[in-house]
Structure formats: structure tokens, C-alpha cells
Design a protein around this nucleic acid. Structure first.
Lengths: 241, 241
DNA sequence: TTCTATCAATAAAC
DNA sequence: GTTTATTGATAGAA
């Protein structure tokens, strides 16, 4: 036994940590990823086990947003919002004259549209990876794409063309999304990608496919979850948690 | 040692369960309570460890709603809905370890107000129980109170009086809440009680005090959470998970 | 990412 | 709610 190659203890295993902000960025990012997944898993289990409706929204630092919802994020939020007098407006007694408990929210179209975007997001990621493989290192700023170009130094004309390009990209993506809608139906939804010409363009979307995580049991049809992780960095900078 | 009275193994400990809807109502209720608490705890840890903003809304069956939010539910939802971060110093560069918690939320007043409602809710529950004890079985529809009467068959005048009664009840509760505010301060918050005359009246509110759960560490001032558990049953029926 | 040792959550029974 | 035996989550390292 003494000469036997001892199997090196590869880890000391989990250690207890204090619940305070993790200083180390890398550790924080790792912890965020793991715990976000864990949180969503817990939520999905709650949905299935109890039959509850749950929505979770997580804004990480940076601009990324991850969301979970059953039966859908918007449905749960609407129910919360409308069931409570549309947030924030509740002054002591003046608001009690609400006469309609129903949810006539026209937000459904928005949801529809957002779903398109979710598809778009996912597809965009696929496209980006494909492009990365095919075109190799044809990229201009270290791993980014043209739509990640900073716009600070663009001239007016350049900006307009830039915007037009984005619009076209968006259009193509939406069409692609429509196609996808016909093939498969999930309830992923996402807020907009930030396509606008106001200088707050966030074209880089990191869509994460988590769909399979929540149904590792036999409840696929029961829980119409939607997982909406998307996000982007500032103009071409590396993504941060 | 052999004759020593062996301590009876009181439980077989945790057992693995399948992630499918729990059939037994009692078990389901217990599981819901435990897992809801667990979920919120995980969320609060995520907030603290990563510095993320998280909102969770849970609609149990029946009409109960539980919510968690940091820095506030509405803030997170708004940011999700509008796609724009409102307040908070969201610079991409990481701040130092302590990350001084400036809580510049303009929604503070709202939170304050919501706290009133939390108090109201809790007090209402107490009042109901007291009434139940004192008045015995003076109730009309099996464990309910007058405000739980279904309004479907009321005449117009009856409805108007009904509404007025509700208004008065609400007013009294708010005053009571104000009194309570002077005595104690917790971070519970709740959205409105659903007082309206539209037939969706939910006066019975079950407010749960979860205040201490989220800060069992040393981060009290960092995480300005708001916990919003409230809810009610249908008109006089027993509360369900 | 994947792997482990450990910590934390929790199903059952009180 | 409390206890206990387990399962499940995850911090640290590779």
C-alpha cells in the first residue's frame, strides 16, 4: 500500500462560504451561473410538484437578464400586476375604485413578439457560432461582429447605414423566427434586443438553451415553462456577469 | 452497551421523490411551504453573493401570491418590462468589496406604503381569528365573514352598501396599520388587498413574516429585499395551497 | 466545462 | 413547528 500510487485528493470538496458579495470576479461569475441554474431548477420543481405558477427575473450586473416563468413570465407578472392595482399607484384609499378585475392587457401581442425575439436570440447565437467556424478569424474586433462595432465614432451617414443594417438583420431574424415557430413550440420569451437608434443598441445576444433542464422527469407537457436568458455586452466588450 | 436502550430511529430521513405533482394535498401544502422558503432563500443568496437583482412571483393554487424582490419587485419587473435599468450605479467596472449600498430607489415610498399593507394584512388575519373565537359560529357560510359573501346575487343597493362597508373596513385597517408602523419596522411588503367592487374581492390576506430569513448573515443593510406574501381564498372556502 | 468532498435542503415522521 | 436520515446543491480545483 505504501508504494501504491495514492490517488491524489483532487478537491477538498465544497467549503462553507459566508453569504456576502463574492469579491473575486471569476468566482462570482461561476457562482452566478451555477446558482442561477439551481434557482431555476428549484422553481421548476416547485411548479411541477405543487402546480404553482412561478416567475423569476434575474438581472445580473452588466445588462444580462435571465428569466423563468410558468406558465409564462408575462402571464405571472400580469396576474401579479393586475391583481394588485398595477404597482406603485396605490395611494391609501383613492385607488379602490377599480372596477375591472379582468386582465384585458393587450400585452399579448407583445408577448407574441417577444417570443419571436427569443427564437431570434437563440438563432442568432447559432448563426454566430456557425459564422465563427466558417469564416474563421474574419472578425474585426477580437471575436465580435460588425454589429458590435462601437458607434461612438461613426459619422452620420455611417450611423444611418448601420441602423439600416441592423433593421435588415432584425427583419431576417424575425422571418427566421417565424419559420422556427412553425416547427417547434416552446414558450420562451424575451424582451427586446435593444434595436433602436438611440445609442443603446445591444445586438449581441447570448441566448442560453435551458429548455431541457426543467423536464428531466416525465412532466414535459405539464410545465409550460419559459426560460429567457438573454443579454449583451456593451459595444463589443467582453461579457461580464 | 448491549443492554443500553437504543434510541429508536425516529425517521427514515429524507427520501427521494419523483418530480411530479404531489397528489396528497397535505404533503403538497407542506412541500409548498418548505420549498417556497427555500426558493426565496436561494434567491436572496444570489442577490447577496453576486449583487444581482432578482424578483420572484409565486402564485399558489387558490389566490395566494408570494413574491420576493431585490431591490424591489416592481423595480425588477419594470426593468424587465421596459428593458432599461433605472436607478442604481450600474457601472461595468466592479466596485470594491464592500460596495457601499446606496439605495436611491425612488420607490422607497412605495415600499413604505406596502409595508403598511403587510401590517394590515397580518393584523387582518389576527382580527379574523379573534373574531372567529369571540363570535363563535356566527358566520353565515361555513367559516367565512360578511366580506366573503358572494356578490353575484346582490341587488344594486346591496352592492353599494357592501362596497361602502369594504371601504370602511379598509380605512380602519389602514389606520391600524399606521399605529403599528410606529411600533415596529420590518421589511415585509405587500401589494394591495384587492379591495374593489368588481366581484373579485379578496379581503382575507395571509401575510407571512419572512423578514428574518434572508439575512441570517451579516448583510442586512446590503440587500434591500422585499418579501410580499399575501393572498386569500375564494369566498370563504378553506385556503388551499 | 467536469469532478468530488462537503454543505445545505428537505421528505417523512413527530 | 422540530428532528433525522438522506438526497441534492455546490465551492474549489482541474
Amino acid at each position: 500500500m505504501n508504494n501504491m500510487m495514492m490517488k491524489k485528493k483532487t478537491t477538498q470538496g465544497r467549503k462553507k462560504i459566508e453569504i456576502k458579495k463574492i469579491d473575486n470576479l471569476s468566482n462570482r461569475q461561476v457562482a452566478f451561473s451555477k446558482r442561477r441554474v439551481g434557482l431555476f431548477k428549484k422553481a421548476s420543481e416547485l411548479c411541477v410538484l405543487i402546480g404553482a405558477e412561478v416567475a423569476i427575473i434575474v438581472h445580473s450586473l452588466g445588462k444580462r437578464v435571465f428569466a423563468f416563468g410558468h406558465p409564462s413570465i408575462d402571464a405571472v407578472i400580469n396576474r401579479y400586476t393586475t391583481g394588485s392595482a398595477s404597482s406603485s399607484s396605490s395611494s391609501s384609499s383613492s385607488s379602490s375604485s377599480v372596477a375591472d378585475p379582468n386582465t384585458p392587457l393587450g400585452a399579448h401581442e407583445i408577448q407574441q413578439h417577444n417570443r419571436h425575439y427569443a427564437k431570434v436570440s437563440k438563432e442568432l447565437e447559432v448563426e454566430r457560432k456557425r459564422k465563427e467556424l466558417i469564416e474563421g478569424s474574419k472578425l474585426e474586433n477580437g471575436g465580435s461582429f460588425w454589429w458590435d462595432d462601437p458607434i461612438e465614432h461613426m459619422g452620420l451617414e455611417e450611423l444611418q447605414q448601420y441602423k439600416a443594417s441592423l433593421e435588415e438583420l432584425k427583419k431576417k431574424l424575425l422571418m427566421r423566427a417565424d419559420d422556427l415557430m412553425l416547427l417547434k413550440n416552446s414558450s420562451s420569451s424575451s424582451t427586446n434586443l435593444g434595436f433602436n437608434n438611440s445609442g443603446d443598441i445591444n445586438p449581441g445576444v447570448t441566448a442560453v438553451g435551458c429548455d431541457d433542464m426543467f423536464f428531466n422527469q416525465t412532466t414535459t407537457e405539464y410545465c409550460n415553462n419559459s426560460i429567457v436568458p438573454y443579454g449583451s455586452d456593451d459595444f463589443g466588450n467582453s461579457l461580464q456577469v
